[in-house]
Design a protein around this nucleic acid. Structure first.
Lengths: 124, 124
DNA sequence: TTAAGTGCAAAGAGTTTGCAAATAA
DNA sequence: TTATTTGCAAACTCTTTGCACTTAA
């Protein structure tokens, strides 16, 4: 564990959900390449996790934050949901196919209540 | 509907699941930029859909192919699953939060039965 | 003194954009 | 003509890589 890696890990904890770019901004004295290398290592060590919250960059978070991400297509808002939301799906895929779902790497897309009421078109 | 757009749509139907790059290869007389523009339009028209099947490029398919994607982290294989797999999850998010899940834009990650038995590490 | 980690700059993949030429209404 | 669409090239974003320099065992 080097100082740079500590800084990256601290930034992930501070930011909660963050892209590599945001993390790089939050740790100005660490090079972007080092941030990417650190995130890869921290993920192997099981200290952080990432998920894909849309078209763009992956989002990293502390490994302890075990939840599902629910993302609105329209406003882009990300809401966390309890991970037991996927229990049924997980059991079915396991029993029917022996497929072990990775709940943490999981994103549900759709349209949130606010955006259904007042669609903010083009605000993707 | 121009000839180029017809060709792109035909390629999506032929390929089933395809990235913009694969589609571009399948339609050599159409420029990549035109492929991207066509896919965007075809999606607005409701003729194709896309989902994110991993870190890389999105995957486009005919809009009629209404199913869930299950992707193995290790071997990268993509398996289609019936969309009723998410019924419970969908109902819960709807009732508890008024969130309308987009089932088509949905990917489940994990490890498939084959890869659990004989892990092919590093084959991501 | 050896191995590992870092910063920097360059390269790479995937995608988007500006614009002039081609096509269609 | 007038608007739309295309191809081409350039630009852009995000990420990875090569390599010399630094740091720590």
């Amino acid at each position: 564990m080097t100082p740079q890696r500590e800084h990256v890990l601290a930034a992930v904890h501070k930011l909660g959900h963050a892209t590599p770019e945001q993390i790089t901004e939050a740790v100005p004295d660490v090079d972007a390449a080092t941030v990417y290398r650190a995130l890869e290592l921290l993920e192997e060590l099981g200290l952080v996790k990432h998920a894909h919250l849309g078209h763009g960059a992956p989002s990293y978070r502390p490994a302890e934050d075990d939840h599902i991400h629910v993302v609105c297509h329209t406003c882009g808002r990300v809401v966390d949901a309890p991970h037991d939301l996927v229990d049924a799906l997980e059991q079915r895929l396991w029993q029917e196919r022996g497929f072990a779902v990775d709940r943490s790497h999981f994103t549900v897309f759709g349209i949130c209540a606010d955006c259904r009421e007042s669609p903010r078109a083009g605000e993707r």
